[in-house]
Design a protein around this nucleic acid. Structure first.
Lengths: 197, 197
DNA sequence: CCCAACCTTCAAATAGTTTTGAAACTCGCG
DNA sequence: CGCGAGTTTCAAAACTATTTGAAGGTTGGG
């Protein structure tokens, strides 16, 4: 793409604006900065890599914000630098493999979050186990109940981790099995017959 | 429980503090206020329903914050008022069915979020479809690419919705099938044998 | 070596969210 | 009614997160 063509485009189309806004919201909902989603989306929808300046212009951000957001996106591995012949600037392109992106984020963020929760529940469980040895019936009963309830939280957290791991290993190799499983049993009261995978 | 006993307890045990902190963090990570998680957890770990005052004291919150947080928790259906004989105050108890809680939150929050994303992607797709009729090759090529990429986002969002729906219908009746499916094909990286139900 | 273009950093400003606490309200009771 | 325990509301304050823009750093060409 020539300079002439590249510098021409300084505004987002309606569709680009709408999609980057939606992705920005989803991503924010999901715990990232909205601009991460917007920048990624603009790159994702662009036929060629864009410079920081392009992004600053189309999204009306300061150069600092663009720089910081891009480096954050790079850390998450969802955007990469692209070298362009004879250009001095850096150009950026979006990771286009959605599964890869998602599994990377899941495995780095969600997973560590849940793992630390599991550890904490286990520790708390150990504490109430000790209290259960207490002799006053009041305290014993309380510890009993708490043991059970913290146990449930722990189970739930472990289930969450299992789900995540299944998703990850699935995504890593081949998204098909899980996808087919889900699509094969669409949202009906899907709980009785469980067709073998 | 007598007043004497109830008014005695004005501090959280180590385990209670730790667990409510962890749940608070998880819940915050997940997009709610930290205090929602903390209050719910204190109630969940309490053998009896607690008053707003109890919560204010043990968590060191203002009465306003407690009132607002409790009403928010009630709206989410994860806490309920309990009438206690001869007491003038309201007492609150946590919903203890974790699956029920989760499926309610998923269906009200995540689902509407994803549904609106799906709609937006579909609209954007329609827009680029129109642009694709454009005669300039440049613009056509761009529209072509965007159609494909927005299509992928749409697919992903739909897959997410399907997953959510499966989880929901599963949770509603019986968590077992999905759980068994997942456990039957555990993530290779996952460590150990999984707990029976 | 210096310049110019580009990129990054960071303190300050801004924007957004949550909490506080006091005032207003509700409700059962005498 | 009017009281008072209990609850809710809400504007202001405190806190958190994000963005800005200018200063300083880096790099490649001349």
């Amino acid at each position: 793409m020539t300079d002439a063509v590249r510098t021409k485009k300084r505004e987002l189309s309606v569709a680009e604006a709408a999609v980057s806004d939606v992705v920005g919201r989803l991503i924010e909902f999901w715990g990232f900065k909205r601009n991460m989603g917007r920048i990624w989306t603009v790159l994702y929808l662009s036929p060629d890599a864009l410079s920081a300046e392009d992004l600053r212009d189309v999204l009306k951000l300061s150069s600092g914000a663009v720089s910081m957001t891009l480096s954050e996106l790079s850390r998450w591995g969802v955007v990469r630098k692209v070298w362009i012949q004879g250009e001095r600037k850096d150009f950026y392109a979006a990771e286009v493999d959605l599964w890869r992106m998602i599994s990377r984020v899941f495995s780095e963020r969600e997973r560590s979050e849940i793992i630390s929760a599991i550890r904490a529940f286990e520790e708390a469980l150990a504490v109430v186990e000790k209290q259960r040895a207490s002799s006053e019936p009041e305290a014993r009963a309380r510890a009993e109940l708490q043991r059970e309830r913290i146990g449930h939280l722990l189970e739930l957290a472990k289930l969450g981790k299992t789900l995540l791991d299944a998703l990850l290993s699935t995504a890593k190799l081949d998204a098909e099995p899980l996808v087919r499983f889900l699509l094969g049993r669409p949202a009906r009261s899907a709980s009785e017959p469980l067709p073998p995978s």
